[in-house]
Amino acid sequence: MDDLAVSVGIVAPELSAGAFDPVLTLLAGLAARRHGQAALLRALARIERAPSAINAL
């Protein structure tokens, strides 16, 4: 959704919790599987100790 909004020059709308929560859970799980739990937690909580990049896809 964000990519689509950016491509047409608008700000992406806020999602309801019912839409956002499962997407967040999925992406966080994928990122943890890819980079490890500690790296994901560091990226979210302590940017100065985080790896250079954390992504889910």
Results as ranks from 00 to 15, higher is better:
residue 27 L to K: 12
residue 57 L to I: 05
residue 2 D to Y: 05
residue 11 V to D: 11
residue 15 L to D: 01
residue 43 A to Q: 08
residue 26 L to W: 10
residue 6 V to C: 06
residue 45 A to T: 11
residue 13 P to E: 15
residue 45 A to Q: 11
residue 46 R to E: 04
residue 41 L to F: 11
residue 10 I to R: 09
residue 25 T to D: 13
residue 55 N to D: 13
residue 40 L to H: 01
residue 41 L to N: 12
residue 19 A to S: 04
residue 57 L to N: 05
residue 7 S to D: 08
residue 33 R to F: 06
residue 2 D to L: 08
residue 22 P to Q: 04
residue 29 G to K: 11
residue 54 I to G: 04
residue 8 V to A: 03
residue 19 A to T: 08
residue 42 R to H: 15
residue 28 A to S: 14
residue 16 S to D: 12
residue 51 P to T: 11
residue 36 G to T: 05
residue 22 P to T: 04
residue 25 T to I: 15
residue 44 L to C: 15
residue 42 R to N: 14
residue 52 S to N: 05
residue 7 S to W: 00
residue 41 L to D: 12
residue 23 V to M: 10
residue 11 V to S: 09
residue 47 I to W: 10
residue 48 E to V: 13
residue 43 A to N: 09
residue 43 A to P: 01
residue 10 I to H: 03
residue 38 A to L: 13
residue 56 A to V: 06
residue 57 L to D: 10
residue 8 V to K: 14
residue 37 Q to E: 12
residue 48 E to A: 09
residue 10 I to A: 01
residue 13 P to K: 11
residue 32 A to T: 13
residue 9 G to F: 03
residue 31 A to T: 04
residue 54 I to H: 07
residue 39 A to L: 02
residue 49 R to I: 01
residue 53 A to L: 14
residue 15 L to R: 13
residue 48 E to T: 12
residue 12 A to V: 00
residue 25 T to Q: 08
residue 10 I to M: 03
residue 25 T to F: 14
residue 16 S to T: 12
residue 35 H to R: 08
residue 14 E to W: 06
residue 7 S to C: 06
residue 57 L to P: 09
residue 44 L to E: 01
residue 48 E to K: 10
residue 14 E to H: 06
residue 30 L to M: 09
residue 13 P to G: 12
residue 41 L to V: 08
residue 37 Q to F: 13
residue 35 H to F: 08
residue 38 A to G: 06
residue 19 A to L: 14
residue 30 L to C: 11
residue 52 S to Y: 01
residue 56 A to T: 04
residue 6 V to A: 13
residue 26 L to A: 14
residue 43 A to V: 05
residue 14 E to L: 05
residue 36 G to I: 08
residue 55 N to S: 07
residue 20 F to G: 00
residue 28 A to K: 08
residue 44 L to T: 09
residue 26 L to C: 15
residue 36 G to C: 07
residue 56 A to W: 00
residue 49 R to W: 12
residue 8 V to P: 01
residue 51 P to S: 15
residue 5 A to Q: 05
residue 51 P to E: 08
residue 9 G to T: 03
residue 39 A to C: 07
residue 36 G to M: 10
residue 19 A to C: 08
residue 53 A to G: 03
residue 20 F to C: 06
residue 50 A to K: 02
residue 54 I to R: 03
residue 13 P to L: 09
